Simulated assay, not measured.
Amino acid sequence: MSQLQYFLALLAGGVSLIGLVFGLISGPLEQALLLKAFLALGTLSLVRFLVPLGFWADAALAFLGTVSVLTGIGIFSPAPAFFWLALVASWLFAWLFVERFSRVLAPGWRDSGGLGLIIPIVFGVAILVVWEAITRGANVPQVILPPPSMIGARIASSIPTLWADFQQTFLKAVLIGYLLGCGLGFVVAILIDRSPFLKSGLLPLGNLVSALPIVGVAPIMVMWFGFDWPSKAAVVVIMTFFPMLVNTVAGLNAASVIERDLMRTYAASYWQTLMKLRLPAAGPFIFNALKINSTLALIGAIVAEFFGTPIVGMGFRISTEVGRMNVDMVWAEIAVAAVAGSVFYGVITLVERRVTFWHPSVRGA
């Protein structure tokens, strides 16, 4: 084990020992027995300094700690000190497992068979468990921050509403505006590359468009295109146009002078050079713009809905439910938007790996 791993192992075992002591003196042994059992096993993990323990033992301790913390939330009000120490210990064991597992996985990363997904899953579950434990164990008011369990229950009970909002915002405004904005930026970049006059005239205008504040543009788009999704798609077009324009222009200039001279020796025309050399070389730049715009488009559509929309949409739902103090519904919309944006980004990344498989950044991924 590395120095960091030894430190994490010592810290996790030490916190477990302190928590066990607090647990034994705070009440009867049978009270919160699972928490105390986890703390006892965590303390026994200190034998790793005499007898080696595999990283799956740390995974088992992290899992047991998670279960014991979640089941022990409702036992005390407020939660005692050993509950919080158990939470810290389980988090440390999860960190230790991820650290050791990543070191083992790194040499054969490409042949891991999907095992690399374990690391982000453990990280995400740890965040949700800490969130749940703090909000419920410390009796945080639900108006300030609801626990994940409450948000999940709200999602399960509001699927028709969330689906209608998702259709209005993502499937209409985001996707259509994204395609139009990225497509327009790409076409204008080709025109700019072809004409020095357009490069001098359109690039400053593109910079001007990117600097327009969304809170000022959105009401104007609503007046121009109405309250339905076309006005939100127009805002998305404005937000996604400039990143695609700048990245495509930069990518078209990525081909080296030697490569361009080689195409001239073959008597290649401008369009042949563009299709066979310069566009493939610009692929990583174009996909960078597509990934950036995948998040900008969703943000732009949601914010634009704050300034006028039919009685449906993610932004509309967030603004109205905040006024009603239904914070769990607000977080449900945020969760749906986060998942949709992450999946959208992931799809673009997968397409990038298929298209630009030759690029060093993709080969080393």
Rank of each mutant, 00 (worst) to 15 (best):
G206L: 09
N207V: 13
V217K: 00
V217Q: 02
P219N: 01
V222C: 10
G226Y: 01
G226V: 09
F227E: 04
F227L: 08
D228K: 08
W229K: 07
W229C: 04
S231D: 04
K232L: 01
K232E: 02
K232Y: 00
F241L: 15
P243D: 04
M244W: 09
M244F: 14
V249Y: 04
G251F: 13
L252I: 07
L252P: 08
L252M: 12
N253K: 08
A255I: 14
A255H: 08
E259R: 15
R260H: 10
L262F: 15
M263E: 06
R264I: 01
Y270C: 05
W271E: 13
T273D: 08
K276Y: 10
P280A: 05
A281P: 11
I286A: 12
I286V: 14
F287C: 08
N288P: 08
A289G: 12
A289F: 07
L290F: 11
L290C: 14
K291E: 09
N293V: 09
N293C: 11
L296S: 11
L296Q: 12
I299G: 12
G300K: 06
A301K: 02
I302E: 05
E305D: 11
E305S: 00
T309Y: 01
I311C: 05
I311P: 04
V312E: 10
G313C: 11
F316L: 15
S319P: 03
G323C: 05
N326V: 13
V327R: 01
V327F: 05
M329K: 15
V330P: 03
A332R: 03
I334Q: 03
